[in-house]
């Protein structure tokens, strides 16, 4: 089967399957932190810090305010890790993509397979988070209060795809693996802090305007809308924003990767 962009699904699945093979060996070790991280944030920030934010934010308890945003950031982290260090090793150290390309696979199939895997990892990570968020409701801290919560996995996948592509795109520019520290400290961490997860972006001058231009803000807005059920037009705008950036990068990334393996 072929997708637009001459992507052969069978080849993309073979690339995906290789990553799943590696992950299968380590998932038991990885899955536990998947539950602890959200739990720690929710207890530490939501209940600890939240105690001093007595009146909550935007009429919500603090823990209910940050929960959906943290889910968005979990999707981001799950996707990004796969397409930074892991991808760099395959691309530059093992030269594994050169080997893939000796089969009938073309570079766009490889890019698609890696993207599918990034979305898979975002989903695994997001699922752990969702279970914890739902569990908080059982112990008296309702966070997921609307039926639209059922759409959250789709939101996780959209955020995962967008960040997977951003990470892949960045990976095509760097020549040494150390440069990922810039990606994480100057891109991922600021997004985490200033995308409205912990406080409204209006807190700083132009906070809203700047955040609107960055992807995690839209992920947070989408998740918050789905969790509360207030599906304002802004939530729709955020979906379109994330989808548009993803489509743009899908058009660019295979060509960028081709320059690194074809020559």
């Amino acid at each position: 089967m072929r997708l637009p962009g001459d992507i052969d699904v069978k080849m993309a699945l073979a690339v995906w399957w290789r990553n799943a093979t590696v992950y299968r060996r380590t998932w038991l070790k990885n899955i536990l932190p998947n539950f602890f991280e959200p739990l720690l944030y929710l207890v530490g920030m939501g209940l600890g810090l939240g105690f001093y934010v007595g009146e909550g934010i935007s009429g919500q308890d603090y823990i209910a305010f940050i929960g959906p945003g943290l889910l968005a950031s979990a999707a981001m982290n799950g996707a990004v890790f796969e397409v930074t260090y892991n991808l760099f090793i395959k691309l530059n150290f093992d030269r594994l993509y050169d080997a893939y390309l000796c089969t009938p696979a073309q570079i766009q199939d490889v890019a698609a397979g890696e993207l599918m895997w990034a979305v898979t990892r975002a989903s695994i990570y997001g699922a752990g988070f969702l279970i914890v968020l739902a569990g908080m409701g059982l112990v008296g801290y309702p966070i997921l209060t609307s039926p639209f919560t059922l759409l959250m996995p789709a939101g996780v996948m959209l955020i995962g795809a967008c960040f997977g592509l951003i990470g892949m795109w960045f990976s095509t520019f760097i020549r040494t693996i150390d440069l990922y520290s810039y990606f994480y400290t100057l891109f991922i961490t600021p997004l985490f802090l200033f995308s409205g997860i912990f406080f409204p972006v209006e807190r700083f001058p132009f906070g809203q305007e700047i955040a609107w231009c960055t992807p995690l803000y839209h992920g947070v807005r989408l998740m918050r809308g789905l969790a509360s059920g207030e599906l304002t037009p802004e939530v729709g705008v955020s979906v379109l924003w994330l989808a548009a950036l993803s489509l743009l990068l899908m058009a660019i990334v295979p060509g960028r990767m081709r320059r690194l393996v074809y020559g």
Partner: peptide, 14 residues
Amino acid sequence: MGVVAQEDNLDTET
């Protein structure tokens, strides 16, 4: 076609 490249490019993680 089958290819054996000059530089080994095996998968070190599997």
